[in-house]
Nucleic acid binder design. Structure first.
Lengths: 235, 235
DNA sequence: GTCTATAGTTGGATAGAC
DNA sequence: GTCTATCCAACTATAGAC
């Protein structure tokens, strides 16, 4: 007979609590996806790691693509929810600076990817796995996952940069995301032989410094036309 | 000392000149690799695109892995050669600024990836394809391809940043590479809905601004401790 | 050097029992 | 819901003709 299962709590691996097959599949898929990328991960490998059968995966998700989409959604959505929460809190307090806004964006990613357990490693590499997934299959996912976040953060940055050109802001924001993805993705060490893994807070500070200054530099001051009521800078 | 010299003519498809089977395979592999990534590209797809047979690929390269390694080498090495040449020219003229050094690094990548033909598209996405290749198989390739460049550029940046801490410089350099890879990789539009593809010179300027300012911000001025005989470094 | 043909493996997806 | 067993397609790699 069917044994009653525990409540479908948030999928937390590492705790003793037994998760549903569906959640175990999502967790295994996230881990493998982060490590090997879409194409290199087989349903068989996922189900094997999850202690389930191939058919279980097809029963719950219908296809490999759907499984992957669901996996990405389930892991990245909470990160973005937290981003929006942090930004909301900042804006409720007053007028956040560029640096504060940037940190609100970066912190959730770095918090979740801190440490050396499997979950952290997964969070560290999953964004890269998404961003460089060579598929048209996940195109729509971008807007769904990042649309709201991008809109809100860009608007906040614009407000934090009065009297400056915002023309390059989306690109600058994008460059910052690239820096973050690349930095957390774990390839930093590969090229430059950085042996220090650079832990969470230090990385957050370094990234925030780099990105916020980069954004500032990307938004030059607008020329004021003869008004005496504004500060001037040399070009 | 490295002297600037023209790029060794890369095998160009589409021109009347008939390329060897080996070169056609490399070109096809580069194109497909850039578009789909390692795992998604099959030897069959490569040989079909090159108008050759599967065995031809195995004859020339021995295995899929070797073909990919040779492909990456053949496309990225010239880019790095040009980087070193530009840096060498700068240093021969005087003491280059951070911005100039950064541009020397970025320009070859952006030049080769300018335009909308297939070769440009390949160069645009190939670095991302390498950086996020989920393989231990290409680990050694990093040092081989980027070791010299990283060493030379880091040294140049250190010289351009006297009286500043260089502790975060490797990381900052890495973040800059991440921004570039991400920016040229073509995923920028996906997230933020940037519809302007942002052409070569504009992208170079934006990237150089962003990265050089980020690097500057990452290297804070050192506290001078009253010594009259030069700047001090933190222990 | 380049081909055709094929061996041997692994992949995604499905059928049907329980 | 989850399993075992199976189908069929695609892959890497090799053998051997020319």
């Amino acid at each position: 007979m069917t044994v009653p299962r525990p409540l479908p709590a948030a999928p937390v691996e590492g705790t003793g609590s037994p998760a549903s097959t569906k959640d175990r599949l999502l967790t295994a898929a996230a881990n493998l996806l982060a490590e090997h990328g879409y194409e290199a991960v087989s349903i068989r490998a996922v189900t094997q790691a999850a202690g389930a059968s191939v058919s279980a995966a097809h029963y719950h998700f219908g296809s490999k693509e759907a499984l992957v989409r669901e996996t990405l959604r389930s892991r990245i959505q909470p990160m973005n929810t937290r981003r929006l929460a942090l930004l909301g809190a900042l804006e409720a307090e007053g007028e956040p600076s560029v640096r504060e806004i940037v940190e609100a964006f970066l912190r959730p990613a770095l918090e979740l990817s801190a440490g050396s357990d499997e979950a952290a490693l997964t969070y560290r590499r999953l964004p890269a796995s998404l961003h460089f997934m060579p598929l048209e299959r996940v195109r729509g996912l971008y807007q769904e996952i990042f649309g709201e976040v991008a809109k809100r953060f860009l608007a906040a940055l614009e407000r934090a940069l009065p009297g400056r050109s915002h023309a390059s802001l989306p690109l600058a924001f994008q460059l910052g995301i690239g820096a973050m993805v690349h930095a957390t993705g774990g390839h930093a060490e590969s090229i430059l032989g950085i042996e220090d893994p650079i832990e969470g807070d230090e990385m957050l500070a370094a990234l925030a410094r780099f990105v916020s200054q980069g954004i500032l530099a990307s938004c030059p001051l607008l020329e004021l036309e003869g008004g005496a009521d504004g500060p001037r800078r040399r070009p």
